[in-house]
């Protein structure tokens, strides 16, 4: 029987003709196909990310616009009473003043027309105080 050192010299693993070229071809084809699949996956991911980013931007813009509208003084949120063009005059009496005198306090109103009872206007001091959300915008006593 041949010794271990001698066996080494013998080609012990014969291989089919053309096998290595075939192996190379198959592996390179597999790698090419894998690259194409990877590129497709990347494109889908980019498209999805783009759509998601656009939706997020739209949502953010809408939210910011809504917030800005809410805070702006030019945009008045009025109640049905306030939208009524007829002023609602609230008669109040000041205990420490002449009881004959009545202070008319006008609550905020977008309109200028005032409806009042003339009999109530004698000996009445007018004080027009225009409020907006508890902030005094106009104050006149006459």
């Amino acid at each position: 029987m041949a010794r271990l050192e001698d066996i080494k010299k013998i080609e012990t693993f014969p291989v089919p003709d053309g096998y290595f070229d075939q192996l190379e071809k198959e592996v390179l084809q597999h790698v090419k196909a894998e690259r194409v699949r990877q590129k497709r996956r990347s494109l889908l991911l980019y498209a999805f990310s783009g759509v998601a980013a656009a939706l997020l931007l739209l949502f953010a813009t809408t939210t910011v616009v809504k917030l800005l509208r809410h805070d702006s003084p030019a945009v008045v949120q009025t109640t049905p009473e306030q939208e009524n063009p007829v002023l609602t005059a609230q008669l109040t009496t000041q205990p420490d003043t002449d009881p004959a005198k009545t202070l008319l306090t006008y609550h905020p109103s977008p309109a200028n027309e005032i409806e009042h009872d003339p009999t109530q206007l004698d000996n009445v001091d007018y004080q027009i105080i225009e409020y907006y959300n508890d902030e005094i915008l106009y104050d006149e006593t006459f």
Binding site: M1, I7, F13, P16
Partner: peptide, 13 residues
Amino acid sequence: DFYSATKIYDILQ
């Protein structure tokens, strides 16, 4: 053929 090409190869395997 490629599994047992030579006797020695076979024995070494």
